Simulated scan of single mutants.
Amino acid sequence: MSKIDMKNLGLNQRFLNEANLYKDLYIGRIMSQYKNLYKVATDNGDLMAQISGKFRYDVDALLDYPAVGDFVMLDRNEDASGYAIIHKVLTRKSAFIRKASGTAYDAQIIAANIDTVFICMSLNNDFNLRRIERYLGVAWDSGAVPVIVLTKADLCNDLQQKLVDLETVACGVDVLVTSSVDDDGDSSVRKYLGVGKTIAFIGSSGVGKSTLINKLIGGNALKTNEIRNDDKGRHTTSRREIIILPNGGVVIDTPGMREIGLESADLSRTFADIDALSVDCKFNDCSHSSEPGCAVKKAINQGELTEERFASYLKLKKEAKYEGLNAKEIETEKFNEMFKEVGGMKKARKFAKKSNRER
C-alpha cells in the first residue's frame, strides 16, 4: 500500500495527543461509508473497517457512531486479512448534524471535523433567504465556519439586489459569487483551501456543488445534474465521502439536502442583529410579543427589521426547542443538554469545583 500524508488529511497535534492515550491502537480518518463498513485512511494506506461489538453495545445514539471525517482508533494500520476494527472515535472538533430520516428525535452526523462549511445556493429560483438562515443556524452550531457561496451568477439578472437582500441575514459571514461558465469561477473558494484543511459543501441538489468540487479537483469525478423545472434538485451525490484535493486539503461531498431538520442551532450568531436589539428591551426576559418597551418590535415598526426575518427567528427557535427562551436562556439550555448525564450544568459545575478542591 502507498503511504498517505495524514497531516494533509487534517491530522494535527490535538488528535495525536488524544490518540496517545490508546497505546495499542492506530489512528485513521474515515474517508467514506458503505452501510456498516468504513473506508479508513491510515499512514500506511486505505483499509476497510467495521466497529467492534463492544463499541456497538456501548453506544447510546446515532451520533456516537463513526461518520465521514471522524478520526478513529483501529486495531491495525495495514490491510491484512479481514476487516480492521474501530474501537474508538476521537473527540470531534466540529460536527454537522441533522435529524435522522424517518425518526422523530434521533440525529445523525453528516460530516465531522470540518474547518469551513460552504453553504451553496444558486442565483435562480433556488435563492431563498429563509433557507440560508436555517443552514447558518446549523453550520454555526457545528463548530465550523460557514461561508455562503452563490452559484450560477451567469443566470442571474439582479445580482446586486440579491446581495443587498443577503446582507440582512448574513451577519458577518463571507459571501462568494461563482459561475460555472467562467474558467476562474472557483477562484474565490480556493483561498479557504490548504494542507490540513477540511471543507464541506451543503445545499440543495443541483445548485452546483459537484460542479465546484470537480473544478477544485481538476476533473469530472462527480456526476452533476441541473435543478429541475419544478425547482427540486436531483440527488446527484448518493453518499458522503472525503476527496483529496491536488493542491492540499480535503473536501467532504454530501448528498443534496433541501431542508435540514434542526436538532440544535446557534441562533445567537445566525440572528446576531435580533440579539443585539434585544439588549435594549425594557425587560430582560422579553419575548418580543406584547411587552412594553420591546426594542425588537420597535425595530420592526421602524423598518429596521423585517417581519419575515423575525418570523423565521421564532420558527427556528421553536423547531430547535428554544421557544420562549431568550439568548442567555438558550445557552443555558444547550449546556444542560451537554451535561444531562451528570444532572445538568449546575451539577456539572459543582462536580468540577469539588474535583479542583481535591487536587
Rank of each mutant, 00 (worst) to 15 (best):
I4Y: 06
N8A: 11
G10F: 02
L11P: 04
N17M: 11
N20I: 04
I30L: 09
I30C: 08
Q33M: 08
Y34S: 15
L37D: 13
K39C: 12
N44E: 11
G45P: 07
L47D: 02
A49K: 01
G53S: 04
R56M: 15
Y57G: 12
Y57I: 14
D58I: 14
L63D: 01
A67Y: 04
F71R: 04
G82M: 12
Y83R: 13
R92L: 04
F96Q: 00
I97R: 03
R98V: 11
A100D: 05
D106S: 14
I109Y: 07
I110L: 09
I110V: 09
I119A: 07
I119T: 02
M121R: 08
L123C: 02
N124Q: 12
N125V: 00
N125W: 03
E133A: 01
E133K: 06
W140A: 00
A144I: 00
L155I: 07
Q161E: 08
Q161Y: 09
Q161V: 13
L163A: 00
G172C: 07
S179L: 05
V181P: 00
D184N: 11
D184T: 13
G196N: 06
K197T: 11
T198Y: 02
T198S: 13
I199M: 04
S204T: 10
S205K: 02
S205A: 07
S205C: 04
K215R: 13
A221C: 11
K223N: 10
D230A: 10
R234F: 08
I242M: 07
I244D: 02
L245K: 01
V250W: 02
D253V: 05
D253E: 07
I260R: 03
G261I: 05
A272M: 07
I274R: 00
A276T: 11
F283R: 06
N284M: 14
D285Q: 12
H288T: 02
S290R: 14
E291L: 10
P292R: 10
P292N: 12
G293D: 09
A295K: 09
V296S: 03
K297S: 06
K298C: 02
E308Q: 09
R309F: 08
Y313C: 04
Y313N: 00
L316I: 15
L316Q: 05
E319P: 00
A320Q: 07
K321Q: 09
Y322E: 06
N326L: 10
T332G: 10
K334R: 15
N336C: 11
K340F: 07
G344V: 06
A352K: 11
K353Y: 08
K354T: 10
K354W: 09
R357L: 11
E358W: 12
